[in-house]
Structures are given as structure tokens and as C-alpha cells.
Write a protein that binds this DNA or RNA. Structure first.
Lengths: 145, 145
DNA sequence: TATTGTTATACTCTATAACTATA
DNA sequence: TATAGTTATAGAGTATAACAATA
């Protein structure tokens, strides 16, 4: 498998590294504004889409299920999340956001300006080009699961 | 400041999120192959460029100086890094890679295929376009410090 | 006085292994 | 027996505050 090391490629790699650093910085900052850690913010954002079994959360986060217990514990202690039984399988617990949790998730989402704000400086055509290039970089394996 | 929420922008945001996730995954994986944590790998990569005062490392990592003590402690315990006095200021300690540390840093760098390997599928012109778009997204504030 | 690095402390995230209750 | 979630434990990163050595 060919890996190129010409100056152009190296600069693109460096720029992507800068994008990654900036994305994380802004994400953690937005989470901190709501007194959440990055992991807590990610989980809350996930649950805002749909109530999710503990095991499934671990898969999404790519971590061990035992870690999710603590993260949900802390979100639950703050009244942002609750555990519900799964009618279909009594072993399963569904983590679901409370009203307060949904509100926090919405404010969190709105404060994630990065990648939206800087994109405002690009034309529709440029955004389309960027989208296509990113798609090709990521290949088919873009799905989260 | 305008923030757009049209489908195209949202898709680009999502794609950037996927790039960030994939970048981290591969970075952590490469570090783990050398039995290093992500933070240790980042510091080692930094020191491979030049010996650095503890305080400066904290600035680069955007963390408190007290944390750097532990990270360098663990790298030093494994013989990858050493602390040297700074002749110019006896308060300062310079963290510097050992020969083993430099070798590990080099292997680590070579194993970071992401963003280089997928870029191989793009033409020179496409890479140039991607570079220009990323530059504009990041603005002038790309410097790490 | 101010700065550099360290220590002490506490919290969160992480993986591993063992446990429980269901299936 | 297999699976879902939890507990217990230990290691690593993080911030805060207090400290010694040096500027």
C-alpha cells in the first residue's frame, strides 16, 4: 500500500492534524461550559438521538461496557439522564435523557460552532468539493458502528 | 457571526467529525503498538523535534505543568526520555529523548498512515484543492502555540 | 517578588476480571 | 451456557493548591 511523503501530502497531513486539534479543543470547551467532560457530552449527544442500551453506548464510544456505568452514573446524579428497563429484555437497561438532559444536549449542539462557522467562509461549490474530497478520504467505512 | 445549517454544511461537519474520530483511533492504535498512551506518544513526538522545558511541553499539550511531571516520569522510567539541566537557567529542566526514545518516535511517526494513506487516492490537483480549503477553514491561527 | 518544576490530592476515564440477573 | 450490566481494582490523565529552588 502506497504512502506518499511529498511536501504537499505532508502539509495536508499537518493541516488535518490542526483540524483535529481544533475540533477537540472546541468540543471540550463547549462541554466544559456545561460542566461536562468530553465523554459525558458525547454520551449525552448520543442519547439525545435515541435511548440506548448500556452495551450499545460502549460500542459507540469504543470503550469497555464497565466504563459506561460510571459515565451514566454521573449524568444520572446530575439529573440529565435516567435508566429505563427494556420491555423486550429484562437484562437490558436503556439510558435516556431527561427533559433537562435534552435541553443541555441542544445547547451543547448549538455551541459547537467549529466546522460550521469556518465553513461559512466557503462557497457552496467549495463546500461540495470539500465534502467529496473528505468522502473519498474516508472511503466507505464512514459508518460509526 | 453567521453559522449555516443547510444539509451540505451539516454533512461536511459530520465528515469532519468522522475524520477526527478516525485520526484519533489510528493515533491511539499506533501509540498502543509501542505500549505508549496517546499523551506519551504526543510528548515523545514533540521531544524528537527538540529538547523542551517542562513548562513548554505543558503549553503544547494545553494542560497544567504538574501533569507533565508524571508523563515525563513514565517515559523516563522506560528509558525513552531523560531530564537535562538548562545551562541558561537552573530552574529549568529540559526533557530530551534518549537514543531509544528517538528510535521509538521515528517508528511511531512511520506508522501514522492515516491522512497519508487515504490521500494516496487523490491526485496532486485534488490534494492541492484540499490543502487550500483546509487552510481557509483554519484561518491564520494554525500555529500550535 | 516572580517563575520553574514538583508534590499532594481528588476526580474522571480507561481496561481487566469477577459477580448478578436474566436469557 | 451465554449475555447485559455492575462492581472492584488499578493505572493514566487532568486540575488545583502548596512547596522548594532559582531568577
Amino acid at each position: 500500500m502506497v504512502t506518499r511523503s511529498d511536501p504537499l501530502t505532508l502539509e495536508v497531513v499537518e493541516l488535518i492534524g490542526a483540524v483535529v486539534a481544533r475540533y477537540h479543543e472546541e468540543y471540550e470547551g463547549a462541554a466544559a461550559q456545561h460542566s461536562l467532560t468530553g465523554a459525558q457530552a458525547r454520551v449525552l449527544g448520543l442519547l439525545a438521538l435515541e435511548p440506548t442500551p448500556m452495551r450499545r453506548i460502549a460500542q459507540k464510544l469504543k470503550c469497555e461496557p464497565s466504563n459506561v456505568t460510571g459515565i451514566i452514573d454521573r449524568l444520572e446524579a446530575r439529573g440529565l439522564v435516567e435508566r429505563r428497563p427494556d420491555p423486550a429484555d429484562r437484562r437490558v437497561k436503556l439510558a435516556a435523557p431527561t427533559d433537562a438532559g435534552r435541553a443541555t444536549a441542544a445547547r451543547l449542539r448549538d455551541s459547537l460552532h467549529f466546522a460550521r462557522e469556518p465553513l461559512a467562509g466557503l462557497s457552496d461549490q467549495e463546500r461540495t468539493t470539500l465534502r467529496d474530497l473528505l468522502r473519498r478520504m474516508l472511503g466507505e467505512g464512514t459508518a460509526e458502528e
